[in-house]
Design a protein around this nucleic acid. Sequence first.
DNA 1: CGGCGTTGGTGAAGCGGTTCACTGAAACGT
DNA 2: ACGTTTCAGTGAACCGCTTCACCAACGCCG
Lengths: 336, 336
Amino acid sequence: MSRSQPRKRATIREVAQATGLSPAAVSYALRGMQVSEETIERVRQAAAELGYEADPIARALASGRTGMIGLLCGSLEDLWQQSLAVGIGRALREKDRYALILDAAGDPARERTLARQLRDQRVDGMIVQPVDPAAQMWGELAETVPVVAIGDALADARTAGEVVFDNRRGVTLALEYLRDRGHHRIAVLTPTRPSTPDRPADLHVTAEADRLGLDIEVVNAPHGLPAITDTARALLSGASRPAAAFCFSDFIAYGVYAAAAEAGLRVPEDVSIMGYDDHPMSGLLTPGLTTVNWDIDGIVRAAVRLVAAAADGQVRRRRIIQAPELCERGSVLSRR
Amino acid sequence: MSRSQPRKRATIREVAQATGLSPAAVSYALRGMQVSEETIERVRQAAAELGYEADPIARALASGRTGMIGLLCGSLEDLWQQSLAVGIGRALREKDRYALILDAAGDPARERTLARQLRDQRVDGMIVQPVDPAAQMWGELAETVPVVAIGDALADARTAGEVVFDNRRGVTLALEYLRDRGHHRIAVLTPTRPSTPDRPADLHVTAEADRLGLDIEVVNAPHGLPAITDTARALLSGASRPAAAFCFSDFIAYGVYAAAAEAGLRVPEDVSIMGYDDHPMSGLLTPGLTTVNWDIDGIVRAAVRLVAAAADGQVRRRRIIQAPELCERGSVLSRR
DNA sequence: CGGCGTTGGTGAAGCGGTTCACTGAAACGT
DNA sequence: ACGTTTCAGTGAACCGCTTCACCAACGCCG
């Protein structure tokens, strides 16, 4: 491509020439290694005058590091994951890194492709919110680049760390809350997770339902708000409408609100709704969404800390467990 | 960094050796240029067997192109900009490109830094939603890399294209709607835009207000939902509460909803609210937010088309003007 | 004073591709 | 049969930085 180049960027060799040093010395100086304070200063000056700034691509090729952290989201359409991405992007900036954000759009095949792509891009580390935590690819990947998982733990234990949600606790919290208010017929809307129908959280849902004597129907919520709304519509207009819908993400709950409004059903009088993230918008709905809060700031900080440490070569693999908290607003009716 | 490398990735030279060709031939073959069909096939085979895939970094250094498009958002906390980013990411994937998303967080200085950083990353093009459309940096930048602006046109005309909102029309639509419903004292909440207090859209607001005989108060809405809510709270609790708030983005309107709820004010009976984006959540609020709709899909497609064309070296610079549409829901009271 | 460990610096070989200038052979026109 | 185009493919020079091995000079110490 012969794009007109006004004046070519200064290279390290020009700086070397200007200072009478070797390129190697300049390279070291700019990173503050192995050279005297005096030359460091001299190089800085010259670089500033020439408007020199190291080319990140060349640097990446030579050193194998890019300063980028890959963020692979399972479903970026979900507002909570958007919040997470924004938060992570911001937190990384404070560490002089930045995020390469990719979106698997709920598709495990795409997730695999994108994960490899990130590795090829030489990200220094990656944070993933896996669609398919059981894929064996994660293990291979983790041998090349530090991987930090958010949400579910990856099946393969070679990761650099994970920020795991205590879903058992979260589920218990939500289901007990619903039972205490007299709900028994409950629809559980979970995001579609292709590979593992028997993932721990789902198992725990049925186990807890048994324990609490609840009558549960698990429904797969597809990807994207319109599709979720369709699913919810079918659910609410069915012959045997459940008393409450427990949604495995606030975003899914928004689809239920929409479907309820369309069907002329009142929340919570006709149907109770419970969420699972606590997204900022949940408090603005009418009624406010009662949900399980996951301290997004804490998650962001933990994930960024883990991945940054791993990217810097520190190896302390850690599993950080997030405890949920019930956030009561008005979307669940008390039948007692 | 001595990260354990299980087995090094295959390089182009190994593929060359395996096929008995030169690296150059392999390079051409894999891109389907200048070589016979037969060798292309042979190279493909060998590459597949060796698990070879071209290293994007090395490729970028040698060719100067990365396949990435930079997306620089003015304020990624704004939900509508999040939607835009998700949409653009998705649309780019269909063109075998991907987005490097950066967030200026409403700060023009950061915007400048990040824009340069994108250029240094050798993105093939960038899409910006400028905080400061008047910065002269855009012009310089556009000489090196194609820039497509969304929202406001950039002051410098060297861009590769722009998707401009017809803000005059949008403002007129909104203000006439409010006037027709008997509102005269109107607060206008605009995002803080540091460099140009007299940007066209703002000027048009006051001009239209004059024409329509409205009593307008322009308020700067800061960055981030909590800060917006604070601003709105101050506005609503003031001695002379306006009859209606016209917010220059739905996200700002959400802050007004929040402040109104806190203050025990009913929407629209006590205060009317009008938005400007039409984000999916706006229909879920109670009452639904009456807003100006900007066909986000059209914007995404237009921007991606423009930037992709420019990145491929086609030079048809174009300005695409987006027409707004009024989307009436229930957040504006009719006083007639 | 000779050997030794630092300190500050150099040269050249990469990193893994792309691309330009060139060549040998085949195809072509007359 | 001969000069001229194509076509397929080659070698080597990059792209701009990092890093490894090595070196000279300079104390320092017994």
